[in-house]
Amino acid sequence: MFGAPTRTFSVNFALFLVALALFPVFVRDSYYLHVGILCMLFASFALSWHLVTGYGGLKTFGHQAFFGIGAYFSALVSIHFGISPWLLLLVAGIVAAILGLLIATPVLRIRSMPHVAIVTLSFAEIIRAVISNWRDVTRGELGLWGIRTFESFSLPLIGAVSFTSTDKVSFYYLMFLLFALVCFTVLAIMRSQYGLAIIAMRESENAADSLGVNVVKYKLFLFALSAFFVGVCGSFYAHYLLILTPSAVLHIEVIILVIAMTLVGGVGTFAGPIIGAFLLTILGEWLRGFGDYRMLIYGTMILLCVMFFPGGVAKLGSRLREFGGFSARVARR
């Protein structure tokens, strides 16, 4: 899966990025740009979660903690200390990564999947409870506002780049750069020898261990990197939407959404989380008119995917071809 990049993959991926980059040239409507930003935000989140879960084999249910910590840390520091959100984007990621290391350490000692799921979920619930209860600072469920947005700057050739709520283009391109960064980092890691070691570790931890793969080091690295990216996403979210509530960024529904995206898109593939995130975000926006039915449809999609399309949308094409008998069965996962 991750040997030399196949030509079709490179071409498809490049076309996808170009299409994303050109989207604001043709579409100026701020609602559509907003949906585009959300798509890329959730795609980055899902890719990072999948880095730990799909590749690392650690089934965590607590990544909303890193999103929430990134968002609240960044928002609070920008409000109280007047530090630029540009810098905080990075610092929030580092804070989330340190926290990730902290929670990964006890988790690493456990191999049982349900334990990992429960411990990471409990950790996220602690963070949520602390942030909702610490009302003097975070204002709890009333919502934190007054968050600073990104400072404007000017570029040669392009001119002034300003970040205001009316002009979503700058936010769109910032999110695009972050998304591309996540994509290329994941690709670079998974194509390196580290990627091979990580896959080996997922397939059989004991075998990898016996062949000299430092399992603990790799798991910690994956967890910290993944937490870093999710923290950066959280920071972007805070300075983009400018209002935070614990239930919006830290509720268990956040991680359920990311899991649903990854499952629908396809676990174990690079494209899966991205496809799933775009599909479900757009579907979610489209279903806004359906109100109460929205979550019902999400739940049904998760169940249907698990039951009938275990490979997700990413593998649907090859499954259909198999079904039609166009190609011989390829004996690989």
Partner: peptide, 10 residues
Amino acid sequence: IAATLGISII
């Protein structure tokens, strides 16, 4: 696990 998540939401 994923299936029970889906069932729970439904």
